[in-house]
Simulated scan of single mutants.
Amino acid sequence: MTLAYSPNAAALLTFAVAALCTALVVPVVRRLGLRWGLVDAPDSRKQHTSPMVRLGGVGIVIAFSAALGLTWALGGFANLPAEKDQLIWTTLAGALCFFLIGLADDLYALPPLPRLAGQLAISMVAWNEGVRIGNIEIPMGWWGGSDLLLPLPDWLSLLATVIWLVGITNAINWLDGLDGLAAGVSGIAAVGLLSVSFSLHQPAAGLLAAALAGSCLGFLRHNFNPARIFMGDGGSYFLGFALAAISIVGPAKGLTSVSLLLPLLILSLPLADMSAVIMGRLSEGHSPFYPDRRHLHHRLLRTGLSHRRTVLLIYAFTQWLGSLALVLVNAELRFLWLALATAVLIWVLVSTRRALQQPAATREL
């Protein structure tokens, strides 16, 4: 059996294996975490009220790696150019290194600055190995001209790449405040990257995205509210870096190109949330790493939304933004219909919440 000439079958197999492996491995990780006392204690900033194992990222990494290993063994990465092959393995190695930083924080509660220094160092190594934003693409087709592709000087390419990799990684990490939120948003983003990678004939990046999406789906089996396990910083760092790196090594490498536009739109909520939180903390004289309850999901909970409805609303907004990105990328009507359907879902989630909050007498009238 070979998958070398069947990219769609390779993606489906990779997705299915990653989802199944994650669903099977995570309960084992949970049992071991409980046995060894590796749990996250509740406090005033957290939503859980009992100790929870926060090593779910171990299961995600094992399943992701197993799915890609099987796909590689069956020839799914056959005929890949040498330079693209290096980018794929650099992405995997970088994601594993980010995972180790997060895992060390889960186990030993590392201070913020050493974590950030490690992230910056790994991102610079990844840039040196070719995972880099190398050009600025200026679209001119709308005005009848040809697109302009301007190469970036090395210092600017390094700066843009490091900000991209570290920024998205920490946006996903900060999003991991409610059951299933980070895994669901990452899964939606990965499916979007899978779609655009295959539409632009970049199957290698698509296979990475398929493994990431499958791992997120399998993890949600145990992490959606009420969660039985958390992914921890190890899991969120792994998902964030993998998502950011795949968007670079996939369809293109320009700052305004398809590969960066899609995750930028999909992750605009967590990125905006991270920016707002940092600015709010700095304005009050606190460190950007000062823990508080300023995040988007905290604000939505304070409006009266339930835990699940808050998560589903952020899912819906993420899917809506992703659908708009796919419309811009592919200009296909089906994605426009998906965006419109998602907008209706958002309206239903918000309007039903308001209806439920009205007094009974008012609703009867």
Results as ranks from 00 to 15, higher is better:
residue 254 G to T: 00
residue 190 A to T: 09
residue 277 V to M: 01
residue 164 W to P: 00
residue 197 S to C: 15
residue 122 I to Y: 12
residue 272 A to K: 09
residue 84 K to E: 12
residue 89 W to R: 14
residue 140 M to C: 10
residue 181 L to S: 03
residue 333 L to G: 04
residue 285 G to Y: 10
residue 241 F to A: 06
residue 20 L to F: 04
residue 30 R to S: 07
residue 277 V to Y: 04
residue 162 V to K: 15
residue 35 R to K: 15
residue 198 F to D: 02
residue 194 L to R: 03
residue 170 N to A: 10
residue 26 V to H: 13
residue 84 K to V: 00
residue 143 W to G: 01
residue 198 F to A: 04
residue 128 N to V: 10
residue 99 F to A: 05
residue 178 L to S: 02
residue 334 R to K: 14
residue 330 N to Q: 15
residue 53 V to N: 08
residue 221 R to P: 01
residue 124 M to C: 05
residue 97 C to T: 10
residue 163 I to S: 07
residue 159 L to M: 14
residue 271 L to P: 03
residue 38 L to T: 04
residue 23 A to Y: 13
residue 135 N to R: 09
residue 248 I to K: 00
residue 282 L to H: 01
residue 24 L to N: 11
residue 287 S to P: 00
residue 296 L to V: 07
residue 335 F to R: 11
residue 199 S to I: 05
residue 319 Q to N: 05
residue 311 V to G: 01
residue 299 R to M: 02
residue 95 A to R: 05
residue 247 S to E: 03
residue 61 V to E: 06
residue 227 A to M: 01
residue 348 V to A: 07
residue 168 I to Q: 10
residue 102 G to Q: 14
residue 20 L to S: 02
residue 81 P to M: 10
residue 266 I to S: 14
residue 173 N to A: 05
residue 263 P to E: 07
residue 120 L to K: 14
residue 253 K to M: 05
residue 338 L to S: 14
residue 203 P to A: 13
residue 10 A to V: 00
residue 163 I to A: 15
residue 179 D to T: 11
residue 79 N to M: 06
residue 162 V to E: 13
residue 46 K to A: 00
residue 224 F to C: 08
residue 105 D to S: 11
residue 43 D to W: 11
residue 249 V to P: 06
residue 346 I to R: 11
residue 71 T to C: 06
residue 50 S to H: 14
residue 149 L to M: 09
residue 7 P to R: 03
residue 84 K to H: 11
residue 156 L to Q: 01
residue 307 H to S: 08
residue 2 T to H: 09
residue 8 N to P: 00
residue 55 L to C: 07
residue 152 L to M: 14
residue 125 V to Y: 12
residue 167 G to C: 05
residue 131 V to Q: 04
residue 51 P to F: 07
residue 323 S to K: 10
residue 224 F to K: 14
residue 40 D to T: 05
residue 297 H to E: 02
residue 107 L to K: 06
residue 32 L to T: 02
residue 155 W to Y: 13
residue 200 L to K: 09
residue 218 G to I: 03
residue 32 L to I: 09
residue 340 L to Q: 12
residue 93 A to G: 04
residue 301 L to A: 12
residue 75 G to T: 03
residue 132 R to P: 01
residue 344 V to S: 11
residue 136 I to H: 08
residue 324 L to T: 00
residue 151 P to A: 13
residue 346 I to Y: 11
residue 347 W to I: 04
residue 182 A to E: 04
residue 249 V to R: 15
residue 226 P to V: 10
residue 83 E to T: 13
residue 265 L to C: 04
residue 220 L to S: 02
residue 1 M to P: 04
residue 180 G to D: 09
residue 83 E to G: 07
residue 10 A to Y: 00
residue 48 H to C: 01
residue 79 N to L: 06
residue 268 S to L: 11
residue 347 W to Q: 14
residue 150 L to Q: 02
residue 173 N to S: 08
residue 107 L to D: 05
residue 201 H to S: 15
residue 99 F to Q: 07
residue 141 G to Y: 10
residue 332 E to P: 03
residue 356 L to G: 14
residue 351 S to R: 15
residue 255 L to D: 02
residue 304 G to W: 07
residue 311 V to C: 04
residue 19 A to Y: 03
residue 177 G to L: 06
residue 49 T to H: 13
residue 150 L to K: 02
